[in-house]
């Protein structure tokens, strides 16, 4: 498996009218299996946009994302389905990581239905993610608004892990959390990486977080990405 970005550029407002403003251009990097690539830079420089492009939620104006050597834009359906399973994304705000109208249980079972897992297997999977994330079983019956940010962020990670991904794009996973919870989440992410060999693309504005987590890292500034030594 490999996930590679080549010469990505992105413009905003490049519609019929107006020439559009360039956010970043010619960004290339590759995510190594089991490693973390940190991406930092000031806010408004398009870090999150880059993350969304890598995970296929948005398309670049120029350049391409390659998954197993195939460009995302020209993928066959079966390939795209594997891509959708193997590349996941985690977002900044834990309070809207789950549908507020559904119980947590429901949100998790929804994913299991997607994977066509049912019966006893379903209960086993659910128990397993609770164990990995270190949460009590009672959270399953709660609504998202009844849980704390840290718990929700753990559950969000747990839900992603159900899909058995190879790559996770972490978009500011801890910047909405308190310091002690941030530390817990970062350790959880590290443990999961060590156990399951997932590679991360960690997007953060906090240099300390990047340095703590990453094996290699880049800084997005003025539309360019520079690789920096960790």
């Amino acid at each position: 498996m490999s996930l590679k970005a080549e010469n990505l550029s992105r413009k905003y407002g490049s519609g019929l009218l107006g020439r559009g403003k360039c956010i970043f251009r010619d960004v290339s990097f590759e995510l190594e299996p089991g490693k973390t690539f940190g991406l930092m830079g000031p806010s408004g420089e398009g870090k999150s946009t880059l993350g969304r492009i890598i995970s296929g939620l948005e398309s670049p104006t120029d350049g391409a994302v390659f998954f197993n050597g195939n460009p995302l834009s020209r993928m066959k359906k079966a390939e795209y389905t594997t891509f959708r399973r193997k590349v996941q994304m985690m977002f900044q705000d834990p309070t809207d990581a789950f549908n507020p109208r559904k119980r947590i249980k429901h949100s998790i079972f929804e994913v299991l239905n997607l994977l066509e897992i049912s019966g006893t297997e379903r209960i086993r999977c659910t128990k397993e993610i609770l164990k990995t994330t270190g949460l009590p079983e009672e959270v399953l019956l709660r609504y998202p608004s009844q849980l704390s940010g840290g718990q929700l962020q753990r559950l969000a990670l747990g839900r992603i892990l159900l899909l058995d991904p190879e790559y996770i794009v972490l978009d500011e996973p801890t910047s909405a959390l308190d310091v002690s919870v941030q530390a817990q989440i970062l350790h959880l992410l590290k443990n999961v990486q060590a156990e399951q060999g997932i590679s991360y693309l960690l997007i953060s504005h906090d240099e300390a977080v990047i340095r703590f987590m990453s094996d290699s890292c880049g800084e997005l500034e003025n539309g360019q990405m520079d690789l920096i030594e960790v």
Binding site: R52, S55, G56, L57, T81, R84, R85, V87, Q88, M89, M90, F91, Q92, D93, P94, D96, A97, F98, N99, P100, R101, K102, S107, E110, V111, L114, A156, R159, I160, L163
Partner: peptide, 26 residues
């Protein structure tokens, strides 16, 4: 643009499913 819709899209739920089960109840 909320996290749960974005993550549902990431997980590969169909557009129909997202519209019916994530957006409509809200």
């Amino acid at each position: 643009e909320t996290g749960y819709v974005k993550s549902a899209r990431c997980m590969g739920f169909s557009s129909f499913h997202i519209m019916v089960s994530d957006i409509f109840p809200n």
